[in-house]
Design a protein around this nucleic acid. Structure first.
Length: 219
DNA sequence: ACCCAGGCGCATG
DNA sequence: CATGCGCATGGG
């Protein structure tokens, strides 16, 4: 399996995915000022094992209540925050995660992800992983989509894609290494590729035959 | 009525 | 290391 080859096949089938920055807009059309990087990080946390459509509703609610801001999140009560992100599921846990993330960002980087971006990739990843509520996939999503760092994201769909070629690994790190070792180190490519894999994964659920046929004759 | 979604933490062997 | 479980909503 040549993963760059697979990328081209997926891109031909699905086209560009426009994953982040997507900049959610308030439903009333009002202009709200918020940090796009922060929005991406919050979205990455909220989408843990959750459909993106449910996350969008939560993001809209946060925007409309002026809560898409680390200081605002820190200041509001856990129950108000939980109520706002209700649609994204696991709202008690996730409200705690948002508060922990926001507190950390304010304390160490003045609430500004652009400052955190100055950290080298490896150190930044380690720091994110040290936070309660942020695991490997969420950390890589934040690194790649919010900080534009070269960190390939592995998720359940990526593993299923590998399965099609009878490639399996024990750990997250090995999957990550598998892709990173044979792809050009490009943020744009990593960004698009992960989104394309998710698109393929959704097709696999809706139309398994087409999803498999798409990849057949590849190795 | 069931199954799953762009996981994670924690408790056990 | 590797399983198992709780967390929770909304759409198919």
């Amino acid at each position: 399996m040549n993963s760059l080859n697979i990328y081209h096949i997926l891109y031909s089938r699905f086209g560009p995915q426009y994953w982040w920055p997507s900049c959610a807009k308030a439903s009333d059309g009002t202009a709200h000022n918020f940090d796009a990087r922060f929005e991406i990080a919050i979205g990455a946390i909220l989408t843990q094992n959750t459909a993106w459509t449910n996350v969008e509703k939560a993001l809209y609610c946060l925007i409309e209540h002026n809560l898409l801001d680390p200081r605002a999140i820190l200041k509001t009560t856990p129950s108000k925050l939980a109520q706002c992100i209700r649609s994204s599921g696991y709202y008690t846990q996730k409200s705690k995660k948002l508060k922990i993330f926001s507190a950390w960002l304010i304390k160490n980087y003045s609430g500004d992800l652009l400052q955190f971006k100055k950290q080298p990739l490896k150190a930044a990843r380690k720091e994110l992983l040290s936070l309660w509520g942020i695991g490997e996939e969420t950390a890589d999503s934040i690194l790649l989509y919010a900080l534009e760092k070269q960190s390939f994201v592995i998720d359940a769909y990526t593993r299923r894609l590998c399965e099609q070629f009878n490639i399996t690994f024990k750990t997250y790190e090995k999957y990550k290494n598998f892709f990173e070792s044979q792809l050009p180190r490009s943020v744009k490519l990593y960004n698009e590729y992960h989104a394309l894999i998710v698109a393929w994964g959704k097709l696999l659920r809706i139309n398994p035959r087409e999803a498999r046929t798409l990849l057949s004759n590849q190795k």
